[in-house]
Design a protein around this nucleic acid. Sequence first.
DNA 1: AATGAATGAGACTTCATTCAT
DNA 2: TATGAATGAAGTCTCATTCAT
Lengths: 192, 192, 192, 192
Amino acid sequence: MKKSDKREEIIRVSLELIAEHGFHGAPMAMIADTAGVGAGTIYRYFESKDILITELFRELEGKIIVVLMDGYCEEKPIKERFIFLCTKLLKYFVSYPLHCRFMEQYFNSPYGVSLKKDKFLGKSSDQGDAFMNLFKEGIAQQVLKDLPLFVHAALTFSPLTALARDHNLALIKLDDAMIMKSIEACWDGIKR
Amino acid sequence: MKKSDKREEIIRVSLELIAEHGFHGAPMAMIADTAGVGAGTIYRYFESKDILITELFRELEGKIIVVLMDGYCEEKPIKERFIFLCTKLLKYFVSYPLHCRFMEQYFNSPYGVSLKKDKFLGKSSDQGDAFMNLFKEGIAQQVLKDLPLFVHAALTFSPLTALARDHNLALIKLDDAMIMKSIEACWDGIKR
Amino acid sequence: MKKSDKREEIIRVSLELIAEHGFHGAPMAMIADTAGVGAGTIYRYFESKDILITELFRELEGKIIVVLMDGYCEEKPIKERFIFLCTKLLKYFVSYPLHCRFMEQYFNSPYGVSLKKDKFLGKSSDQGDAFMNLFKEGIAQQVLKDLPLFVHAALTFSPLTALARDHNLALIKLDDAMIMKSIEACWDGIKR
Amino acid sequence: MKKSDKREEIIRVSLELIAEHGFHGAPMAMIADTAGVGAGTIYRYFESKDILITELFRELEGKIIVVLMDGYCEEKPIKERFIFLCTKLLKYFVSYPLHCRFMEQYFNSPYGVSLKKDKFLGKSSDQGDAFMNLFKEGIAQQVLKDLPLFVHAALTFSPLTALARDHNLALIKLDDAMIMKSIEACWDGIKR
DNA sequence: AATGAATGAGACTTCATTCAT
DNA sequence: TATGAATGAAGTCTCATTCAT
């Protein structure tokens, strides 16, 4: 196995195990075993479990941003772009339940809290950007309600992730039609 | 300290510590020390840590239901009732940040998942009821969008709890005006 | 409940619970609850759990000696007396399985070891006496093999208690005929 | 220390401490300290204390069977074989007092009871076999008394282990002559 | 005299991390 | 560089015993 393959495998397995069992249900030894590497090896790639988790988050975040931005056209009308982004996001979480579960865990943990505070302090260059710019623009154009960005974010991301989670728990079935209706509802919430 | 005082104190301290540090960041020894009781004493009142947590959840849930239902009038129009309930809920979480953080932790944990599944199976008699009945009624009266109840729930609770959390993290400031605007936005999301 | 009744009840319940669950499976709180007294009350009658157990042993030992000696006639021939005592003992253990189990536990524990050492040092005035005298007499009369008393004891008590235990575990069925045959076999072992 | 040395050391120390202090008097921490390993290390070799104890039993049992069967000749007459096996067993216990004490503790515990029940149900392939076959054969040939196997076992093993224990407690001195006499006495007990 | 809530030492076990090979 | 055995601090829970009521 090549060096970079090992790192990749550790990341992949961590995602899987943490998504399924939670941070505390996925010991380093289990990750090492499943990844087919020695326990000590993980520490050659990641200083600590915390850092492994943070790194994993960053990788997923990066992938999601790529997916979101693929085909995104800043020229299109606000609403169309909103629906474009939301649909991409929701479909991504439906297609990759493990990513969804991991992200959920991450945001609802001390990690997530620091992250949010960082974002508040303006350090962000993450997935929120496109959305945040969209919200700003929409407010400026008086297409969206005149509310703080965090409120728009709350009215958008929270329902979407909640829906994705419910879908993954098999509490609802999110087909394309349902996805579209839900996103339209979100739009109704933020639009002026 | 009287017997019931001790139980009360254990519950109070558990809420505080778990809200602040999470389930895994609040060991029994820490709870015992902070509550000023022996480690073994906790086990006189709660069979296990799991049961302590579940019990704590139930107590909070009970309090919240009481608050929500106080002054609730089923005769009023759907929208008015929706705003009434949401306002109560959001103000409660703003007033009791610890309760908010604890509930958040609880729902985003194996406990919360079982709970949701139970609710899905129709066993619930909890806080959701008033909301769920409201949603059902609203759909029947064609006041609300024709979507599954879980979608309405996602469009309502998720943004509200996200806002409360952001407020508690001092990322936004939820005053009465902002609360009202946010809830109106939620209403826009679910209304037909 | 009278004072002496309480002591009696504690002893009775201890026997029952220890016989069933072992020394470590019968916490003081369980004994107190089952006996219908407060946990602290036990300590008015017995200084410690160890002393409770020792006391319980002494009481049972006393009862057994009474049973053994009832009708015992020193004038009868050695063999007849041997069979008389063994039969009484074995039937006692078959009739009182709890006593049997407790005695077994007691002898196979640090308590039992000290006891044996004490007996060796000549402090005994216990159930062994009649047997020990019998053995001495039998050796003197050249009816029994010329072996140390402990060997005679080992050839007698060990099989008897093993049989009683097996009976209580339902591994064998000790009816009167089987009891008699087994004791005859013991006799064959020690007789010259 | 090599890997296998550590396991060996843990087993050795466990035997020693449990033989001396009993199962409950030999905490894992004490075993770890005495063996000169970390507490967690034990769990790399044994899943739990129960499993450590069971494993220890199996190892001893294995050794004893090897010793017993070494030089055992099925062609020899019943009595000679009986004396052969008993002598080997008794001498083993006299040579290895710790093994004797451990086995005693094991058999007089919930572990031992299950074992006996298993043996009763015919699952055994353990040390008893040679003896049990001997007993069966002896009964068939009308050399031994016509009694259930468990009675023969009680008349054989119980006195032998009692004698070994008494020897280890320095209550008697089992030299070769005494061993032979005692075993002859056991034979007298079971022979027709 | 009796209670039983409270205690806290100590039991078993887990797991992030280290380090000799 | 990679390993994985070893570590030991820390976690949950039990229970003999005490003491205020």
